[in-house]
């Protein structure tokens, strides 16, 4: 029954995909009307103006361009023109660095907040104010104080992935069942040991959920941050192709950003499955 369901679901997915492509193809196929032009003048104009070709590319244009990128993903033609693979590597590198620093800060701090009601009350107003700030709002401030654009981008990733992890860790730690803590107390377990053997395993699923939310946000933000500072990364690639009004490449970037974001999320989902326990 279950395999039957999977099969039917994948068939349906495929049908939806095919319908989408067909609709896209039909929508971009027709050409608009064009006025007659002097041939000398027409030579100086783009296809949209001369043949009425839709400015929106069709699915086959995109597929051809994807093939072109796949054939040579790691080319390097100077500082401002690198292959899609290299750009992705730069972005993933930045996200990982900022994210890892955020993990190192958020989880210990979250533990402290979760275990001590005093700290929780004292820090709460700060967290509530800092949490809703759009990460990109930090950018000008970061550029001005850090004085280095690539570190600024990493800082922005750090600051935006910090809060969900911090709050989830604190919540997970605070919500550990009272009976378990009481058992630990009766057995006179030392605080550090209590943190690692009782609280950490109990709070792990909540912490992982926070980490999963954070990686999603970090990946969302890196694209915008790189569009702002330029240089390298998938965000810069989108900006550079927008500059050239190349919608084909922008669509490809969107696809790639989506795929990588999904992979990052799935990787953390795997880890989360390892630490869940039946209640």
């Amino acid at each position: 029954m279950s395999s039957n369901l999977t099969l039917r679901a994948s068939v349906l997915s495929f049908v939806i995909f095919a319908l989408f492509i067909a609709a896209w193809h039909i929508a971009t196929r027709q050409t608009g009307s064009v006025a007659a032009m002097d041939p000398e003048y027409a030579k100086l104009m783009g296809l949209t103006a001369t043949t009425g070709k839709s400015a929106m590319p069709g699915p086959f244009d995109v597929a051809a361009k994807i093939w072109e990128h796949l054939k040579n993903p790691f080319y390097d033609r100077g500082p401002n023109d690198k292959g899609l693979g290299i750009q992705l590597a730069f972005s993933i590198g930045r996200v990982m660095l900022g994210y890892c620093i955020a993990v190192c800060v958020a989880i210990p701090t979250g533990f402290v907040i979760g275990m001590s009601p005093l700290m929780s009350k004292a820090l709460n107003p700060f967290i509530q104010v800092m949490k809703p700030i759009s990460p990109l709002a930090w950018m000008p401030l970061a550029l001005y104080t850090i004085k280095d654009s690539s570190i600024s981008a990493i800082f922005v990733i750090f600051i935006c992935s910090l809060w969900p992890m911090l709050i989830n860790t604190a919540f997970g730690v605070a919500a550990v069942r009272k009976e378990w803590l009481n058992v630990a107390r009766t057995l006179e377990v030392r605080p550090l040991r209590k943190a690692f053997t009782v609280i950490l395993p109990a709070a792990a699923p909540t912490i992982l959920t926070g980490m999963r939310i954070s990686i999603g946000i970090a990946w969302l933000v890196i694209v915008a941050a790189e569009m702002l500072v330029g240089g390298t990364g998938i965000g810069y690639f989108v900006w550079n192709e927008w500059n050239n009004l190349s919608i084909v490449n922008v669509i490809i970037s969107i696809l790639v950003i989506g795929l990588v974001g999904m992979l990052l999320d799935q990787a953390l989902a795997r880890v989360a499955r390892l630490v869940t326990y039946p209640d």
Binding site: A35, M37, D38, E40, Y41, K43, L44, M45, G46, R77, G78, P79, N80, D81, N240, E241, N243, N244
Partner: peptide
């Protein structure tokens, strides 16, 4: 090319040579 302006050559050429389409049908 993409490393510099990232524009079609004919656009850049029209700017630099000064022989260009004005958008109203005149060269």
């Amino acid at each position: 090319p993409a490393n510099y302006l990232n524009q079609p050559v004919t656009v850049v050429e029209q700017v630099l040579t000064g022989t260009f389409a004005d958008g109203l049908g005149n060269v």
